[in-house]
Amino acid sequence: MFTLQILVDGFAISALYGLGAIGFTLIFGVSGVLNLAHGGIMVVSGVAAWAVAGDLHAGPYLGALAGVAAGVLTAFATYGLVVRPIQRSRAIPRDETEIFVLTGTLLWGIMLQVAIAYLFSDNPVTVQPLIGGVVQVFGVRTPRNELLIAVISWVSIGLLWLLVNRTRAGRTLLAASINPRALTLLGFELSRIYLLVWAIYGVLAALAGVLLASFLGTSSANIGQLTASAFSIVVLGGLGSVSGSLIAAYVVGYLETITAYTVSPTLRTIPALLLLVLVVYLRPQGLLGRR
């Protein structure tokens, strides 16, 4: 029973971790950007969904849609106001662009955190679940919403796989992640590809933000932790590797759940961080990384 409980609880949280992390890794793979405002985008989506569903009495579905829209807009704002100006700046030496993007997105994330705390307070809020009630899964009482979160996460991941592997736009993204220079020589406009990848990233991060807010709640105070969690998963799986991130999400998700159940909920993140240190030391490219 105890093992089953860990299996069921770990599955949903890992799926959510995976959804949150694949956008993060995708954007690094395609455009080389490590977006440290990632947690900010997730929290903006969650808080927007909560505000629209609750304050405007729009209901959980419209609320969730509004949350995703707010997340996508924030992702575009991150790209348009922070990343792109830094990448285009002539004042910044080319080999220092990445560190400037890193710093810029980190500061942007802090701005988002302060803005959300100012407008909505830093008290946690929860998004109305899309469905209520509980069901027994292998004898474990599980909220229906938790199962729905796992399903939505996996469907979204599946759709991303189809997009990348079965569509022309997706294959262009893949090519951009392997050799962007060759792609420009073939006449592709890289800026349009970047816009597409930021749009996909925005949807994935926003969806993860809304689902997380309906599962565990969300708060501006969580922004740093959410970014760190996605960063750990992506480094563990290998920067730029979508499948590596998914495997890492499940490794981290289950490691945390096992620790929380068998040792202490307070120490849940420690073993995953130790594993991360070990991986960085023994296999710096991560589980399935290319760089």
Partner: peptide, 14 residues
């Protein structure tokens, strides 16, 4: 007693 940073209370409730 649990950390004030705890976000997932499922193991505690179980």
């Amino acid at each position: 007693r649990f950390s004030p940073d705890t976000t997932d209370f499922t193991p505690i409730f179980n």
